[in-house]
Amino acid sequence: MRNVYLVTAFLVVLALSVLGLRGTKFIRPPLDVFPEWAFPGMKRQSKYKHQAASKFFADGRADRPLPPGVVASSQGPAGQPLRNDDSLYTGKDASGAFVARVPASLTVDRTFLEHGRQSFTIYCAPCHGALGDGNGITKQYGMGATPTYHDERLRKIADGDIFNTITNGKNNMLPYADKLVPRDRWSVVAYVRALQRAQSGTVADVPEVNQAELGIK
């Protein structure tokens, strides 16, 4: 009987040393307690999930690219889900010139600007800086010159031109159309305008009642 206990103890120590403890870092694919061959079709079912691989399509992806010209029904403003407002998607009017203002179908209000601020902070600020002065964090890591928004040329360009730059990119800047739907892009345009206005403000812009609390005389 003593030998049986010894063998058991040895096996326990062996198992412990092979299996190790919880939480240890490892690189090999995780063990499966209920493996697929024993329970087929449970954990891995015959369906496609996001960004999955597919043997059916020639390019090997389950996610299908949009056919040209197709617009997701959620992209339009409320009440006009389909693409019946071209300037909303291109930033250009019928003659091909950039529209001067954010399309009228979008209401520029506080919520819209806050949404623009959020999108700007995530996607633009890393290079353009939180103030839009071109001093984003990437500059320290070797990013090429990023223009400041606060010069005469960029203050005067049309809203549609900024929208076009976000959509299609410009020079070294790649398109951000895959990250921001048109409504998001217009909200960023509106926020960029707000940044420009803020940076070009003067004492005269501060209401008189507030001047005292800012220490302006």
């Binding site: 299996l19 919880r22 939480g23 240890t24 870092k25 490892f26 690189i27 995780p30 499966d32 307690v33």
Partner: peptide, 10 residues
């Protein structure tokens, strides 16, 4: 807690 936590593939 044992099979998955710590999985850090290359």
């Amino acid at each position: 807690k044992y099979t998955r936590v710590g999985y850090a593939p290359v």
